[in-house]
Design a protein around this nucleic acid. Structure first.
Lengths: 213, 213
DNA sequence: GCTGCTATACTACCATACAAGCAGTTATTG
DNA sequence: CAATAACTGCTTGTATGGTAGTATAGCAGC
């Protein structure tokens, strides 16, 4: 149950269903999900290690506010890793792998609603990491990604231009299919720059969700 | 107490004081450190999330064996991130920063025993990340590094040539001091390739510490 | 001698009770 | 009236008992 709770809460936080700054009480969550405090507590510990909540002893547990510097660092790490991953994928990709990538592209084009697109998005990036043979490297990206995704879910109603993201994805896949590592690197870097444009605007619009420090 | 326990056990595992494959019992650790089982359990959860132990429900908790693929992926991630960090550090470094790097170099040269060198090593890499203004990016590297450090501690008795590592460090610092990003990148890549040479030899020598899968 | 069952001794997991600390409010006192 | 002290309601932290599952050693039966 503890692991499931962690998964549930994690999703809720990343999707900003649980808004940054919200107080999470162990007993509250426990009664809500009909379990004791212990599994909840353990879920909190996991979330704290992912920097999604902050446990302040004897005071409370709070959904971490978004810290712009952390989001930028997450982006930085993700760019570095995904660039390297894409280069390796470009070297390794065989016909079957390229076919799988095209499938995820189709799925993205089909799912025009935002939540669907985001999961297809995630699936594609993950697939690229698997093609590169870097499964456990993807676990790191996935962890870091959470900080960025919270921002994306803030903006998903209005800002993000899906067509643009989709064409960026196409560029990445094309480069990998052409076994062109340099082109893949460039395509990933362009793609990773996307969030940089949204962040300042969002910090201005939702100040209560950001850490002012 | 839970957090302290986590720190203690983490160190013991990374330094292979607790050998890969060892069974860790909640009650054992609890009685040994004079606490109840709960804090121990919470420490285990943290360690599991860092992939340092494996909790098998109703069976036991075990120090994870070293998986060569995971070490290689950790190295891969670390190289990607530290290359990017070093490039930024080369851009940002001012006189004071360069002076701090020289201090850590001196500390490394002074501490000729292995444990001392490793902590000075860590301090230098951390300092570079701070100079680059990527503090939270370093947290990721630090986490990933644990998988590599376990291997380094296996080899610290005999294999690792400290003088060689030190000269590699000097190359990195020189490149940063010269504000030469390309040189910094090259120096870091060379440095990160070091562990690649040790890994196969160690897997052969200590097979019981490695996962055969 | 070999196979299969059973008792037992472990394990992690969950629930519950108690302890300790912080904060805001209320009562008390100078 | 003001300042302070105690009180009350919250929080996380820790300890402990009971549960369910697994692995193993030993015995029974073939």
């Amino acid at each position: 149950m503890g692991a499931q709770l962690h998964q549930l809460l994690r999703e809720a936080i990343v999707q900003t269903t649980l808004k940054p700054g919200t107080a999470l009480s162990e007993t509250d969550i426990a009664t809500r999900y009909q379990v004791s405090r212990q599994p909840v507590r353990e879920a909190f510990i996991r979330l704290a290690q992912e920097d999604l909540v902050e446990i302040r002893p004897q005071r409370g547990t709070f959904v971490r506010r978004i810290v712009a510097a952390n989001v930028l660092d997450a982006r930085f790490v993700r760019e570095a890793v995904e660039v390297a991953v894409a280069r390796e994928a470009a070297m390794n990709a065989d016909a079957a792998a390229i076919a799988r990538l095209h499938v995820t592209l189709k799925a993205q084009a089909a799912a025009h609603d935002n939540p669907g697109f985001l999961s297809a998005d995630e699936a594609m990036h993950r697939e690229i990491a698997l093609i590169a043979g870097r499964e456990s490297a993807w676990r790191i990206v996935d962890q870091v990604k959470a900080q960025m995704d919270r921002v994306r879910y803030l903006s998903y109603v209005d800002v993000s231009p899906i067509d643009q993201l989709l064409s960026q994805h196409r560029a990445i896949v094309d480069a990998i299919a052409a076994h062109d590592a340099d082109a893949a690197e460039m395509a990933v870097r362009i793609h990773m720059a996307e969030i940089l444009q949204q962040l300042p605007e969002l910090a201005r619009r939702y100040p209560e969700m950001f850490e002012t420090s």
